[in-house]
Design a protein around this nucleic acid. Structure first.
Lengths: 412, 412
DNA sequence: TCTATTTGTTCAGCGATTGAATTATTTGCC
DNA sequence: GGCAAATAATTCAATCGCTGAACAAATAGA
């Protein structure tokens, strides 16, 4: 139905300004060139007077800054362009994964301004110790950000597992975590960010979800809907609808890895049979290609596989084709169900996309009813590794842009 | 992410009142007992003064009326309860299906105030003729509604097929429709409703989607998320997220019938193989139970099947168990993907639910990762036949409640 | 009957938007 | 070079709707 979703609570006099601050800032954020106040007035429907007042608040709060006038033909006083500030609030992105820790800082404009990756096998490390190391990295990131005039106002942590609303990691099988109370563990360290009303200090989320958000950031701005599939050991999907992540009733959406593709096929560790993960998971592909599983770490194995396929290795090509077909069966089901027009292959799939896309597209063409009228695009992710950390930081930034009033109230 | 979704456009001075009208009316609609102005003030966060002013507008516009005071213990001036008006604007629901036409009128409170069903095989009837007959029925409904003090302000049509944004029925296979421009055909008749700003005169939608909305109406008010599956000749799903129908990028979501459950299985008319429809569609179940397909019309066949199962007929029980298992495989995939906590079996499945639910639940238990922490409910629909028509009318009513300003501007 | 309590209304004050008028700054033409 | 046209941004009185507090209404219990 997607009715104009009214704000949940009461709309008081002051909310009016809050809403228009968000409206104008959002327009600036999604514009493809620096808009003038007049552009914003026509785009939003507000009067130029109101836009001027709103922009004044945003300038005072260091959320936007004026740029060189956008070149324009014809007579008239030249406009002053408005862009998101490269100083001011920023988001902190954290990621714990099987073989690395990552920290990054993203500014309002979505630029990655700081990035640190610490490679190590995290499986034998206790959750508290892993988080402590992450806090250490975050401290350095914070100092670096401060030198660049950035203030961290919120943090998001990506974890390869199921996370509930409170930030409790219920299960991260490949990491060996179970019922890890992340917020409580992090509360024992000094705070990593400066608290701002309206922006949660820390959110914890599934790695696949946040990688999808990262992808959203790298796209031309504006709402869009797509399915982002992270092919790692497990297979996770992030569902982005109208520019917002869809989390499901309890935040556990996206478990595409256990969609059945051969219902009477191989048993899966989830208890079911013939799950996608058993046919298109990284380990399954590597094994099918004849590479010994334990021989190489995950990312190296993927690179090796791409090399072999590039060289025309028959086993590798067949393994990739079979995996792509299995993936395509699952994706076709999802597209039939949700009517999405774009599928992004991310994580380990990104490097294998040249060989995975054709069979995926073939299955979509064969199984999706509406494919005839409305083509489905399948493409690799544009982000590299640590996409989830970038997406995590980006999720904080999106919150600031969507609710600038909190920051403005604080910063004056 | 589900950030506080701001209204899409500008927030002008008057929008403030519009938003608060919607806020207060929404609270009245979702309350389980008639709330007082004071209740609304505490619930919404507005002051009593504002609520009084807003309620005055709503009373003047005949959207709400005062009811007997809700009994309350203790001292104090007794409250005056507020309920949705049983006179005023109402929604018109229309349905064209394979073997009947249906028209109904739903008032603001969600009550069905008028209902007409015309049974006939619509397959040999030209779309224009079917719609003409529907318009005739709608005319009678309008007069009946007027006698009850109801004004029809919008119409929604349910069709068993794929409908695009403009109301064009791209394909309704079981009805034999293809590229039928419904709005244009209906525009040739006198208007069925009284146009109101903000409420579309006519929307056309998939029958399964609208049946899901009908189910939403029959639930205790408030946002909820569930998957509604209509088991007819085809199998359609309506996805309700947070009380709103999810339509997909182009409005073609819900094609669950072509989720693969046996990827190398029977060929399907969609071009794929092993689609759910081939194993849990009505024709498939009836055939598997040993009932000749052409012998009976669809609804009679379902009733017969239920009788046989009730009597312990082995073939019928086995057919239902197999269908339920196939359905469960598909549903488990959807639940894994979307993290829904409720599945409603509607349409032809409702009557067969006692035999379908157990195998569906079994597959969910076996295949859904999060089932251990958060149980999934599977239950039959509470609505009878013509659920889609009721849902269609309800969708109009929901629009009025979500955007009362349009009606108020008109009615004064 | 009187007091405590809760509901609903009235009214001055105020914040934010509006719309028109005004100022600022450039292009293009004579 | 100077002037008119055009576009951008600001200023300001008017207006709309919410707030907060005081007030009126209506009931239960002492």
């Amino acid at each position: 139905m997607s009715l104009t979703h009214a704000p949940a609570g009461a709309v008081r006099q002051g909310s009016l300004r809050e809403l228009n601050l968000a409206l104008v800032l959002g327009r600036i954020a999604m514009a493809d060139r620096p808009p003038s106040r007049a552009d914003l007035a026509t785009a939003t429907g507000l009067t130029r007077a109101t836009v001027s007042a709103v922009v004044e608040d945003l300038l005072a709060g260091r959320l936007v800054s004026e740029s060189d006038p956008a070149p324009r033909s014809g007579a008239g006083r030249p406009a002053r362009g408005l862009v998101l500030a490269d100083q001011g609030p920023a988001g902190l992105g954290l990621e714990v994964n099987v073989d690395y820790l990552a920290v990054c800082v993203v500014d309002l404009a979505g630029q990655v301004r700081h990035r640190t990756v610490h490679r190590a096998d995290l499986r034998p490390v206790a959750p508290a110790d892993a988080l402590a190391r992450l806090v250490e990295m975050a401290g350095a990131a914070r100092e670096d950000a401060a030198r660049r005039g950035l203030t961290l106002v919120g943090a998001a942590l990506a974890v390869p597992g199921l996370v509930d609303d409170a930030g409790l990691v219920r299960l991260a099988p490949n990491l060996g975590w179970r019922d890890v109370p992340v917020p409580a563990l992090l509360a024992e360290h000094p705070p990593m960010i400066e608290q701002v009303p309206g922006i949660p200090a820390l959110t914890v989320d599934n790695e696949a979800n946040l990688a999808a958000l990262g992808e959203l950031h790298s796209l031309p701005p504006g709402p869009s809907s797509f399915l982002h599939i992270s092919g790692e050991v497990g297979i996770g999907a992030g569902i982005v609808l109208d520019g917002a992540l869809f989390r499901g009733v309890r935040g556990w959406s996206g478990e595409i890895g256990h969609l059945p593709v051969h219902p009477e096929g191989r048993p899966c560790r989830c208890g079911g049979q013939g799950c996608l993960e058993q046919y298109a998971g990284q380990e399954a592909i590597v094994a099918a290609a004849g590479l010994a599983r334990a021989e190489l770490p995950a990312d190296t194995a993927t690179a090796r596989l791409a090399e072999l396929a590039e060289a025309g290795d028959a086993d590798a090509l067949r393994a990739l084709h079979d995996a792509g077909t299995a993936l395509g069966v699952a994706v076709a089901g999802v597209v039939n169900l949700l009517d999405l027009d774009t599928v992004v292959l991310g994580g380990g799939y990104a490097a294998l996309a040249p060989w995975l896309c054709p069979p995926v597209l073939a299955e979509i063409g064969a199984r999706v009813l509406t494919a005839a009228w409305s083509p489905v695009t399948v493409r690799p992710s544009t982000l590299g590794a640590e996409a989830a950390a970038v997406g995590a930081a980006g999720s904080v930034v999106r919150r600031i842009v969507a609710q600038p009033a909190g920051w403005l109230a604080r910063a004056g």
